[in-house]
Design a protein around this nucleic acid. Sequence first.
DNA 1: GGCAAAATAT
DNA 2: CATATTTTGC
Length: 515
Amino acid sequence: MVCTANDLLGWKDFPKGLRVLLLDEDINSATEISSKLEEMDYVVSMFHCENEALSAISDEKQSFHVAIVEVREHNKEGRFKFLENTKDLPTIMTSEVKCISIMMKCIALGAVEFLEKPLSEDKLRNIWQHVAHKAFNAGAKEQTEPLKSDLDIYLKKEDIEEEFCQNQEHNDEVPVEMDKYPAPSTPQLKQGMRLVDNGDCHDQDQTNVSIEKECVDHDGESKFVETTCVVDATATPFVTVTDTSLEEGIVKPLSNECCTDGKKQSEASERPNSRATKSSRRKIKVDWTSELHKKFVQAVEQLGADQAIPSRILELMNVEGLTRHNVASHLQKYRLQRRHILPKDGGRKWPQTRHSTPRNSYPQKPIMAYPPYHSNHALPHAQVYPAWPPPHNYAMPPQMWVPPYYPAWQSSENWMWNPYPGLQAEAWGCPTVSPQASFPQFQSRGSMQSRQTMEKNSFENYPGDEVIDKVVKEAINKPWLPLPLGLKPPSTESVISELSKQGISTVPPGINGSR
DNA sequence: GGCAAAATAT
DNA sequence: CATATTTTGC
């Protein structure tokens, strides 16, 4: 059985109840291991020969999450075969003898780990990690469309890779104290994955910053904040990072883009680990995804301008892992943005007239700059909604607040108004900020895989952010090319006039659009 | 809680 | 190398 990330999400008390197939011809050993496992609330099915085990596996009525298989010289061929036939089942090999060639072969054949006997409790305790790993990895391959679990929204690929270290204070309900039992195991490395082991992952004051991608959540409700953890490459145990497989999207299960961004990976792996060695390690970075921001905004709106203080917002948001500081910081930026944006007329440069319907006509600038000349672009209306809520909404009492169709932010880089929309936007007649209300789950750092998926979806519905971003970027960088999305370039006169408004009266030769 | 500096990320 | 975003410190 292939456990999916979603399965894990809904799994109360994970990894309790994890079904373990145990194959060991030594009855004593098997019994011993089994009882240890059962003490940990794993559900064990013991087998003494491959065939029994294999038929149990193929039995529809049974399913296993992970297998522990003993191997020794005389049965190795059978075990290899077993391994080959159970690719979907995370299989841990174990042996009394330490034979490097056998070990190697097992690993080569897909074993997720090789453990030397005897199997201590510590070793056994962590076998769930392989299930989680598998789940995350499996999801990526199958994903055809984004999963939308809460975790999806909050977790990112980095988490999956880097989270081993973050369990510090997860004191509530964690069935297994992972933090106290450093995984003896070597979670299966899939392409490009790194194992991270930040020696000191404690965080300071808050009790909530534990992000656990692997043990996902123990309570279906909890939402984790997407964070980026500092990685210490040197601390990475025997993991050879294979960056070549960037787009190998791993998992999508958990999030929009779990483990897929090759660039990030390589960067991370090469990243100097200065920080890791530093005693005062920086806190993991909260990634304000559109969903998270949306929550934030809703909280702010609900509270009203005067009540909207970090602690209350935090409370309302109810997002696990988020700290007051995080919120405060975001609030700071939020206010800054509004201050910067609102004082401006809001009408002169950004006539709401264009595509606004009663419902979405906000007094502020739309999220994207609008081409003043043409309205025949292919962008859907939803895209013009402002990222920040309009002022009248902002101050509205809870009961009065009507959630507008809120455009989720795409990436943190473009969720605010374009500070200088006039020039670029009007000059080029194309959006400067990519809209995206339809696929908030996609982050800009998305994997190639999600990117592709997104693009596919996008074209079937709305263009996705990334698509737009890309297109817009290209349009800006290569003005000589025809504008995409049905946009037309502004007239020379309008450009000149706009430039003069900006104080540019002379246009240097060579930038007149031809080249 | 809020502001600003420092640290990072892009 | 500069800017933007987020964390830290006060």
